[in-house]
């Protein structure tokens, strides 16, 4: 019993986590016609495997040109928001970890409060503000809220990482004759980089996942990100949501996540748990 517990547990975890992913992949291979007619079951029933048709359509067919556009939007917006957010958060986290100053508590409390903020209660006024500023339905209109809402996570993660850095080493390097810039670049940057990188991944996940801002602050393809695009997905027959094409689009939108997870799983786990539970 005791010996079997862990392997069974592992199996349960794998099935639990991956089954829905396998399911949506399977659905994405069911042919469009068979889905309209009804094609229940986990795997495509006989003769209804559409191969890569659905993927081809979603990526290249003119009818679905809103989707490649949404991919560009999502990648662009998420990357810009992540970069800017991590830069701003690095400054703040450095200050929090290393300096004594008035208002430290304020930043921490504020970012905690914002992490808990009900996003939906902002979209009304934000929509109003954004149209006055003329950034409604633009990339910038999404980048700003993404930055604001990823800052708390980035600041928490980064300050936890920074607190672990042995900053004395920098001084030691300087004593050894390095200039302060060299000391910073050669000693501190390599130590801080993993933390910054982890914060960037978590920030990217947030921006990639956002839905509420995506549907409320855009109204055309010019800025609509993937989740909103999926929710408004329309096919050749406007009355019938093309489940299998939608599934193909959903799988495509998951690929970046899977790649990031495969490459950096260790870092992500460290980032999620660092700073979260101390003491």
């Amino acid at each position: 019993m005791k010996k079997l517990g862990v392997p069974i547990g592992v199996l349960v975890i794998l099935v639990w986590c991956l089954l829905p992913v396998v399911w949506i992949i399977s659905l994405s291979f069911k042919s469009e016609e068979s889905v309209t007619a009804g094609n229940p079951g986990f795997l495509p029933s006989d003769g209804t495997n559409a191969g890569w048709d659905n993927y081809n359509k979603v990526l290249t067919d003119d009818l679905y040109d809103f989707f490649p556009r949404a991919i560009i939007n999502s990648i662009g917006i998420s990357l810009i928001a992540t970069t800017l957010s991590v830069i701003v958060a690095t400054l703040a986290a450095y200050a929090i970890a290393r300096l004594e100053f008035k208002g430290k508590k304020l930043v921490l409390t504020m970012s905690l409060a914002i992490a808990m903020f009900p996003v939906v209660s902002l979209i009304g006024p934000l929509f109003d503000m954004w149209r006055t500023f003329g950034i409604y339905d633009t990339w910038l209109g999404l980048i700003i809220p993404y930055m604001s809402f990823t800052l708390p996570l980035a600041i928490w993660t980064l300050s936890a990482f920074f607190r672990e850095i042995p900053w004395e080493m920098e001084q030691a390097a300087q004593v050894d004759g390095a200039t302060s810039w060299q000391a910073f670049r050669k000693v501190i940057v390599p130590l801080a980089a993993p933390g910054v990188f982890t914060a960037a991944i978590l920030t990217f996940f947030f921006a990639w996942n956002d839905f509420v801002f995506g549907i409320s602050l855009t109204s055309t393809e010019s800025a609509r990100p993937i989740p909103a695009s999926l929710a408004f997905f329309v096919g050749a027959d406007p009355f019938n949501r093309p489940a299998s094409l939608l599934a193909a689009a959903a799988v495509i939108s998951t690929i970046p996540i899977i790649i990031i997870v495969l490459l950096f799983q260790r870092k992500i786990v460290a980032g999620l748990t660092s700073g979260a539970v101390k003491g």
Binding site: W23, L27, N39, F205, N209, L230, A243, A250, I257, V269
Partner: peptide
Amino acid sequence: IRTSILIPYGIVTVVSGFAWQFAFTSTN
């Protein structure tokens, strides 16, 4: 295990919603 547990974490909520919605429908 770490990888597979992080996939639901990273997946877009909307995608999770669709995956389960379609899983629960009687037609497909």
